[in-house]
Simulated scan of single mutants.
Amino acid sequence: MLYRKQVYLKNGQGFAPVVVRNYTQQDFDELIQIQRESFPPPFPSDLWWNMEQLENHVTLFPEGALCVEVNGVLAGSMTGLIVHFDKEESSHTWQEMTDDGYIRNHSPDGNTLYVVDICIRPAYRNLALGKLLMQSMYEVVVQLGLERLVGGGRMPGFHRHANRLTPQEYLEEVLRGQLQDPVITFLLHAGRTPIRILENYLEDEQSLHHAVLMEWVNPFMTRLLEI
């Protein structure tokens, strides 16, 4: 079942019409441009989407390929796949869990939606579009009857504090509000809960290749998961 909703978000003195929907082949060129704008150097350019990856997203799991438009302009996207996930499993990398972004390992009978990517055009980051996309993907989790949404959150502020803090200590200071991290703080505001630190998760100099594995548990499945 495909997804579409329209809301109005505050924009200056008024409200802008915003649409969240599934992205299609017609959006591919613009999605790649959004990646360029959202992840400038030192983020590796070879991690931007390519046409084959995007084609796989819309054919293997179109329900997990979401984008957001503001006044008809494509402003961001979020992508996921379904996996078999055990919360107690050992660490993993982004490449392993997402098939390097190609999602050929998508498992329709899995229990968890794993986040491949979320990005918002810098010019539109004052509208809380990332939180809107995240909430929309939670709705996909509920619609599909999955147990949870999980993904690794980059720690782009960590490199400035690595001389005095371990990754876990950095996370704890973010949780206490003593530090703000562009990604982890956003994910906390969007309802995600930290599980553990992932080492060598993604080639990312700012995070020193670390990430925080963070989940959102389907509230309609919580009691079942506790049994």
Rank of each mutant, 00 (worst) to 15 (best):
K5D: 10
V7S: 07
Y8D: 07
K10I: 11
N11C: 13
Q13P: 05
P17R: 09
V20E: 04
V20Y: 01
V20C: 07
V20N: 00
R21K: 15
Y23A: 01
T24P: 02
T24D: 09
Q25T: 15
Q25A: 15
D29F: 06
L31Q: 04
I32V: 14
I32T: 05
I34W: 05
R36S: 09
S38F: 01
F39T: 07
P42V: 09
F43A: 11
P44E: 12
S45F: 12
D46H: 15
L47K: 12
W49S: 00
N50D: 15
N50F: 02
H57M: 04
L60G: 03
G64I: 02
G64A: 02
G64D: 03
A65G: 04
A65R: 02
C67G: 06
V68E: 00
E69V: 08
V70N: 04
V70E: 01
N71L: 03
N71E: 14
G72Q: 12
A75S: 15
A75Y: 07
G76N: 10
G76Q: 09
M78F: 09
I82E: 00
V83S: 01
F85H: 06
F85C: 00
F85M: 07
D86T: 09
S90A: 14
S90V: 10
H92D: 11
T93P: 05
T93S: 15
W94R: 03
M97H: 06
T98C: 06
T98R: 07
D99V: 11
S107G: 07
D109H: 11
G110K: 02
G110P: 04
N111A: 05
T112N: 05
L113S: 06
D117T: 11
I118G: 00
C119L: 13
A123S: 15
R125E: 04
N126C: 05
A128T: 06
A128L: 10
L132Q: 04
L133P: 03
L133E: 00
M137H: 02
M137C: 02
V140N: 00
V140W: 05
V141G: 01
V142L: 13
Q143G: 07
G145C: 11
L146F: 06
E147F: 02
E147G: 05
L149N: 02
V150E: 13
G151I: 00
G152C: 01
G152Q: 06
G152H: 00
R154G: 00
R154M: 10
M155P: 02
P156A: 13
F158R: 03
H161F: 14
A162I: 11
A162H: 10
R164Y: 09
P167Y: 10
L171A: 05
V174G: 04
L175R: 08
R176A: 13
G177P: 04
Q178R: 14
P182H: 08
V183T: 10
V183W: 01
F186S: 07
L187V: 07
L188E: 01
H189W: 15
G191H: 07
G191W: 07
P194M: 14
I197W: 10
I197N: 08
E199Q: 12
L202H: 08
E205Y: 09
V212H: 01
W216M: 03
V217K: 03
N218P: 05
F220K: 14
T222I: 13
T222H: 10
T222Q: 13
L225M: 15
E226D: 14
I227W: 08
